[in-house]
Write a protein that binds this DNA or RNA. Sequence first.
DNA 1: ACCTGAACACCGTTCAAGT
DNA 2: ACCTGAACACCGTTCAAGT
Lengths: 216, 216
Amino acid sequence: MPLSRARIIAAAARVADRGGLDSVSMRTVAKELDVEAMSLYHHVTNKDALLDGLADWVAAQFYRPKTDVGWRVEMTKRANSLRAVLSSHPWGLGMIESRSNAGDALLRHHDAVLGSLLTVFPLRMAAHAFSILDAYIYGFVLTEVNLPFAPGEGHENEMAEQLVPDMAGLPHLRRMATELMATGEYSFTAEFEAGLDLILDGLERHTGGSRSEGTS
Amino acid sequence: MPLSRARIIAAAARVADRGGLDSVSMRTVAKELDVEAMSLYHHVTNKDALLDGLADWVAAQFYRPKTDVGWRVEMTKRANSLRAVLSSHPWGLGMIESRSNAGDALLRHHDAVLGSLLTVFPLRMAAHAFSILDAYIYGFVLTEVNLPFAPGEGHENEMAEQLVPDMAGLPHLRRMATELMATGEYSFTAEFEAGLDLILDGLERHTGGSRSEGTS
DNA sequence: ACCTGAACACCGTTCAAGT
DNA sequence: ACCTGAACACCGTTCAAGT
């Protein structure tokens, strides 16, 4: 099978999944393909172009909202999709955000999100909704993927126990760790959905419609 | 003046402000201090420790909410402070989030935020508020600092003009660029505050209090 | 105790050479 | 047309040597 841009990007994604973004070098990606580093330059102009491709590879997996379905359901599906994709590729968010020019897949994704919002919101309000949803999702995922453990697997209490010893002089954090996280009452998924619903509720007040499409 | 951990971190911040995080190397930081690279190792154990110090240097500048003032005013001040600090040091957010163990300054900041929220919310609701505010602020700043231009200086229309040509097949983004951004009606600061207020309004409904401390 | 220079194993990338 | 090896200017870091 000959080398190609697509194969190189897929190989880079595998290397990043395995060892983090820092482990992606022209030499490690080449090794993944049983080829010399210099061979890659015949298919990608340089490492920056490879990273652009990697960002696009991630964005292509984001769910694109449809316009013939209720906006709230679509925004929820979209939010969960981003969280899922970026959780399984923790390097993805940094990759997407650090590229100075958005790739095609990301632009198409954003266009689809905006299209769904425009089915119920006037332009300016749709822009507000777009901005707040994007910020919330990215921000939540940003902290989640950088946690020193894998969330969503019941490790919340372990984390709390790890952290408590260092919490002299931090009374409120200590309280949260002992009374909430250590008791198993805390779940990142529930937290994500609660925040999302608060935002969607706030937005819905500006549609003039009733709360017909709630998700909970 | 002798070398010290603090001087090294301050020099690293200057290098990062000037040339981005990628330009921070043991050799460039040493040169900033007119010293050899190896001298740094007598004051920081390795580059990772230097980056930990850099993250702490940023977090130390975040405004810490007080408990004897209204929570809404404090949360707004805190949000604006984070945006201001992270805008003037665009490498700061990535720095803070990529450290696997939070530094002391960041923990103290978080403790202060939680303390303010606990003056009006029960623990679980305070945790929700903490999570959603952090996610929103980080997410908004994340996209803002990675824009290919400096926002808040009226460059919004320039951006729109740059982007429009490539927008074949992206009808909704094109519409937003031409009808909203290019007309000068769009402002990142206004957008940030609108989203923040929507979230604070949503949270306020859970305090049982009236909207007495509004900021607009 | 603090600073340094050479050295080692890595980077991204250029260039001339192979097929 | 595609792949390669040597080379260059960089990295972080170790270690022995200087003061």
